[in-house]
């Protein structure tokens, strides 16, 4: 388990990239009050999804506009073909906690 930040440091519409203590970078999103965490690196080519455009529970890659559903990690349009790993994230006592999933993507 990793403490990401205080919840007020991740307001709605924002994202954070976690690089410490994780096997691969993780992006944590606050999508209108609901938190999601997925692998940060686009499955198509090297780009950080925490830098992407968040709309509802979809994030659009800043490089080639592949879109991923944060609930499942699955791409909703090309060029990405492979899914992202999703991770469990929760708020406890005002802290955003990340539980990294090392299994296969959905």
């Amino acid at each position: 388990m990793i403490t990401v930040c205080r919840i007020e440091d991740l307001p709605p519409g924002e994202a954070l990239r976690v690089t410490e203590g994780v096997p691969a970078p993780v992006a944590v999103f606050n999508a209108d009050g609901v938190l999601y965490a997925v692998d940060d690196t686009c499955t198509h080519q090297d780009a950080s999804l925490a830098d992407g455009w968040l709309e509802g529970c979809l994030v659009e890659c800043p490089l080639h506009a592949s879109s991923f559903d944060l609930r499942t990690g699955r791409p909703t349009c090309p060029p990405a073909k492979a899914a992202l790993r999703t991770h469990h994230v929760e708020v406890v006592d005002g802290l955003v906690l990340l539980h990294v999933n090392v299994g296969e993507p959905a």
Binding site: A47, S48, A50, D51, W53, P62
Partner: peptide
């Protein structure tokens, strides 16, 4: 500056 770019591009 990808994050700034995606916002300004819009």
């Amino acid at each position: 500056q990808a994050k700034a770019f995606v916002r300004m591009r819009r």
